[in-house]
Computed example of a mutant assay.
Amino acid sequence: MVRLFGPLIGLFFAVALLWSFGNGAYVAITEPAAATAESVFHKHPKEVHFASDGVFGRFDKEQLQRGFAVYKEVCSTCHSLKQVSFRDLTAIGYSEAEVKAIAKQWGNKAQTFDPKTGDRADRENLASDHFPPVYYAGQGSPPDLSLMTKARHEGPAYVYSLLTGYEAQPAAMLKQFPDAKTPDGLHYNPYFANLNLAMPPPLTTDGQVTYSDGTKASVDQMAKDVSAFLVWTAEPKLDKRKQTGWPVVGFLIAATILAYLAKKNVWADQAH
C-alpha cells in the first residue's frame, strides 16, 4: 500500500506547489502591489569608481590611509571594526611603529578577564589585538563595518551614496504620500532601504578630517576614501587574489591547449 500511495502523495504535493506558484504569478501580474514611498523614491546607488574595481584593479594605499583617517576621526565613535586587527594596517602602508602607536592611542581599550577572581580590567591595545568593540549609548546598535561592503548590494557604491545622499524630503513625495513624513529623530536619505535612518549625516563639512598627504578633504572625497577603506576591510587579500588569478587562468589555458593537441595526436591514426 505504501508503494501505491507514495507516488500519489508526491504527485499531489507537486500539483499543489505548481498551483500555488501559478496563482501567485497570476495575482502579481493582475494585481500589482500598491505603490509606496519606498518603491517610488528609493534610489539606486550612484555611479562611482574605485581603484580596486575590475580584474586589473589594485588598492590605492594612499587612499586607504585617507579612508582609515575618516573612519578613525568620524565613524569609529559609533561603528566597530571587530574583524580587523591593528597589525593588518601594515598592509596599507603603515610601519610597525606606526601601528603600535595607533593601537596604543586608540580610544577604546582592550578588556582582560581574570577567570580566578572574575575581575575585568582595561589595558592598552596591542598591535595583535582586533579593533575593540564600540559601546554605543544611543538607541539601537550601529552595525559593524568590517564586512559592510560585502553585506550590501553594490557595497562600495552604496556606502558612498549613503554618506553623500542626505537631503530634505521632496515636496512631491509628501504630496503623494502624506503619511511618509520623516519621523522626528530620523533623517531622510533616498539611498537607504526605508528612506529614513537614525544616523545623522556623518560628513557635513569640507575639511572635517585633515589628510596627511595634503589631499583636499571635501565631503565627496572623504566619502570615497572611507568607502574604499571598507572595501579593503571586507576583502584585504583582493590584490593577492587577482595576482594569483591571472597565472591560474594562464595555466588553465595552456593545459587546455596541450590536452587538445594530445587528443589530436592520440586519435590521429583513427582518422585514416
Rank of each mutant, 00 (worst) to 15 (best):
245 G>W: 11
152 R>F: 12
82 K>V: 11
51 A>P: 03
72 K>P: 00
172 A>L: 13
191 Y>T: 01
21 F>C: 09
18 L>M: 11
40 V>R: 13
143 P>I: 14
270 Q>P: 00
151 A>R: 15
246 W>V: 15
166 Y>I: 09
165 G>R: 08
257 I>D: 09
80 S>M: 04
36 T>R: 08
47 E>D: 15
67 G>P: 00
147 L>E: 10
38 E>Y: 06
157 A>L: 05
32 P>C: 06
245 G>V: 01
243 Q>A: 14
222 M>P: 06
4 L>G: 00
27 V>N: 08
238 L>K: 12
210 T>L: 06
70 V>H: 03
18 L>R: 04
202 P>A: 02
171 A>Y: 05
123 R>D: 04
108 N>Q: 15
198 A>D: 03
131 F>G: 08
40 V>M: 12
254 A>Q: 07
157 A>R: 15
36 T>P: 07
23 N>W: 11
197 L>I: 06
79 H>S: 02
28 A>W: 06
266 V>K: 14
137 A>K: 15
183 P>K: 06
246 W>R: 13
84 V>C: 00
221 Q>N: 14
236 P>A: 04
74 V>I: 15
64 L>K: 01
99 V>I: 04
260 Y>M: 12
271 A>S: 09
148 M>V: 15
267 W>T: 14
40 V>W: 02
83 Q>R: 12
259 A>R: 12
46 K>G: 05
104 K>Q: 09
158 Y>T: 15
162 L>Q: 10
27 V>K: 13
2 V>A: 10
52 S>V: 09
136 Y>R: 10
134 V>M: 05
267 W>N: 10
71 Y>T: 03
46 K>Q: 14
150 K>W: 03
136 Y>Q: 08
213 D>V: 09
118 G>H: 09
251 F>W: 12
53 D>E: 08
242 K>S: 03
195 L>R: 01
259 A>Q: 11
237 K>C: 01
29 I>V: 15
191 Y>H: 06
66 R>Y: 02
121 A>F: 02
264 K>E: 14
160 Y>G: 02
15 V>A: 14
81 L>W: 02
242 K>M: 08
210 T>P: 00
246 W>Q: 11
205 T>M: 10
113 F>D: 03
36 T>H: 03
143 P>M: 10
21 F>S: 10
25 A>E: 13
129 D>H: 05
197 L>C: 03
11 L>P: 00
272 H>S: 12
43 K>Q: 15
39 S>N: 13
267 W>V: 13
260 Y>I: 14
206 D>T: 08
103 A>W: 01
52 S>T: 09
206 D>H: 04
148 M>L: 13
123 R>H: 08
170 P>K: 10
27 V>Y: 04
242 K>D: 01
219 V>L: 07
264 K>S: 11
139 Q>S: 14
24 G>F: 10
83 Q>M: 10
56 F>G: 07
17 L>H: 01
223 A>T: 05
177 F>T: 06
244 T>R: 13
165 G>Y: 01
68 F>Y: 15
219 V>D: 00
261 L>F: 13
233 T>F: 00
234 A>L: 01
